[in-house]
Simulated assay, not measured.
Amino acid sequence: MKELETIITEFRKKRGWEKYDTLERFSKSISIEAAELLEHFQWDEKGDNIQEIKDELADVLIYSLAMCYHLNEDPKKIIEDKLIDVARRYPEK
């Protein structure tokens, strides 16, 4: 995960994009990219264009991870904590 953080952070920094980093902008960007992902299933639930789906999914992940780094949070820890919480609410069958 640390390598991915470096890749994403350096990529954004080299383009001067970090000056736009706010929680609101990250949240909007994640939502917009998620909507673009959903568009691939709007009229055809098969989602045949896997490359375009992967591209939109990558955008969602990049913005989500960038938001974690902006908050100085470890994405792995956030996910683990969430899974623990969900497991408590929805125990195994």
Rank of each mutant, 00 (worst) to 15 (best):
A58H: 02
W17S: 01
I8Q: 01
N72T: 15
A66Q: 04
D59H: 02
G47A: 06
W17Y: 06
Y63A: 06
D59C: 01
Y69A: 11
R88T: 06
T9H: 03
K13E: 03
L37K: 03
W17H: 07
K28G: 09
G16A: 03
D81K: 13
G16L: 03
E24P: 04
D48F: 09
F11E: 04
G16P: 01
Y63N: 04
E52K: 00
Y69D: 14
K82S: 13
K77Y: 11
S27G: 13
Y69P: 13
L37A: 09
K54Q: 07
I53T: 08
A35W: 11
E92W: 13
D48K: 12
F41T: 07
F11M: 05
V60G: 02
R12D: 02
L71M: 15
A58K: 00
F11I: 01
G16H: 00
I78G: 05
E5F: 04
D48A: 10
V60C: 01
T6L: 08
K76Y: 09
K19T: 05
S29M: 12
G47L: 04
K82L: 14
L57Q: 01
N72Q: 15
I78S: 12
R12M: 01
E73P: 12
Y20S: 07
C68D: 05
L37Q: 02
D74N: 13
E73Q: 15
I50Y: 12
F41Q: 08
D48Q: 07
C68P: 08
D74I: 13
L23M: 05
K46Q: 09
M1H: 15
S27Y: 10
R12Y: 02
D85M: 11
I62A: 05
L83W: 15
H40R: 10
D48W: 09
I78N: 05
T22Q: 01
S64W: 08
D55Y: 00
T9Y: 01
K54T: 07
S29D: 04
Y90S: 11
Y69T: 13
K19D: 02
A66N: 10
H40G: 07
